[in-house]
Design a protein around this nucleic acid. Sequence first.
DNA 1: CGCCGTATTGAGCGCTCTCAAGCTAGGTGG
DNA 2: CCACCTAGCTTGAGAGCGCTCAATACGGCG
Lengths: 238, 238
Amino acid sequence: MIINHYQTCGECEFTPLCLPQIDQKMSHFNQCLPIQRQLVLKKGEILFTPHTPFQCLYAVKLGAIKTVQTESNGEELIRNFYFTGEIFGYKAIHQGEYRSTAKALCESHVCEINYREFLHFIQQNPHLQEHVMYSACSHINRGSYLHTKSAERKVAAFLLDLSNRLHPFPIKGVLYLPIPRQDIASYLRLTPETLSRISTKFIRNKIIAVDKRKLTLLKPELLQGIADGRVESKIEFR
Amino acid sequence: MIINHYQTCGECEFTPLCLPQIDQKMSHFNQCLPIQRQLVLKKGEILFTPHTPFQCLYAVKLGAIKTVQTESNGEELIRNFYFTGEIFGYKAIHQGEYRSTAKALCESHVCEINYREFLHFIQQNPHLQEHVMYSACSHINRGSYLHTKSAERKVAAFLLDLSNRLHPFPIKGVLYLPIPRQDIASYLRLTPETLSRISTKFIRNKIIAVDKRKLTLLKPELLQGIADGRVESKIEFR
DNA sequence: CGCCGTATTGAGCGCTCTCAAGCTAGGTGG
DNA sequence: CCACCTAGCTTGAGAGCGCTCAATACGGCG
């Protein structure tokens, strides 16, 4: 569903490009992004599919998007999650096409930014250009914790990653998971069973608390220690 | 060792920015990169260390560089390899500093490109700008095969990755490995023992041939099949 | 209440790690 | 020329972690 044309907002990584009044120091961002259109996706709706030629970057205005890639052996793997405020599609700049399927995890509002117009636009201001390079480079080595071997470290790192990226900012480490367990497991290259066992262990050790979709990080420092491999998650009682 | 100032060359990803005559279609790249200086590193010499403020991108003119990161638990992990023609340092644009140690795997020639000057330079030409975004985005999801669980798939994918990136282009799939086994193992998050066992298996199955540092890919298609998880590497005889 | 998809729990197996020993190549000194 | 040494690589046996497969529990919805 298309809401309108060329609307701008202040709700993504490019905010200073849209809302110069937010920060005096950002006052050089005095123009608005050439947003082609804003989309509203229902849960499960698809934004793009593999082998579609690259044309647009996308900004998540509100909601959560997952990208899924089907391996040549048929396996379906989650490649990435994108939450409110985040930009995605950079990888397709290099590849010339999208290689994954982008699907909404919940009702989501997404801005479609035409890359050609976008390039033209940012050329008008050196600071914009620098900002965009900065944003693009922030995607290098995203989720590098997936390289870790230990399932516990991966889960701990993922939870911390989530708490940093999920908006609105978690009050006392409280998050509402927009992602089903299966997708988290797939993203972390674990089985749902292993993920479940580790959550249970974290809960028993009072590191996190879980109530359906509501997740509370009770001891973020300890979680960081586990993620870094500095701390053993110890207790294995029942 | 500093060779000279503001020299340019045609031996990296930014080649068309330096050598417009290579391709008529690239004739808009009519200026030269503001290279601060060219360095020659002996084997084992260090280019930068963690916590150094970001200032420069680096282009490998010739040779091979590894980046090593010390985890907070003391473990030393290889983060990346960079070969002839490749650019590195993009990640530090976002982080504001280098987070790893860059070390030469063999005698290497490296161009140090001042990022401030570089930004200023590319602003003069929209096509350069696009090219640089393209280059930066090519680094997103580099080495995504590290996410794989199977050691065999990782090794197969790594060998193919190498054969695509090692210059001069391999004749009939022949490469000269500039990387010690231990570093390969660390990069792949495997032990040297596991890597060794898998190489042996590949050799027994006549998928590759190894003579010290000389590596021949005998069946690249099969290797691709293993990397993709489509093929079992079968035979386990002795 | 019954149904179905999602999540959890349990038992056994397999892959990769650990630790230890053996091997090879290259360098050194007698 | 050869014994010796060292570092890097390979090989072997046993242990542990995460996977597989199966059963059970939960939760939303008609």
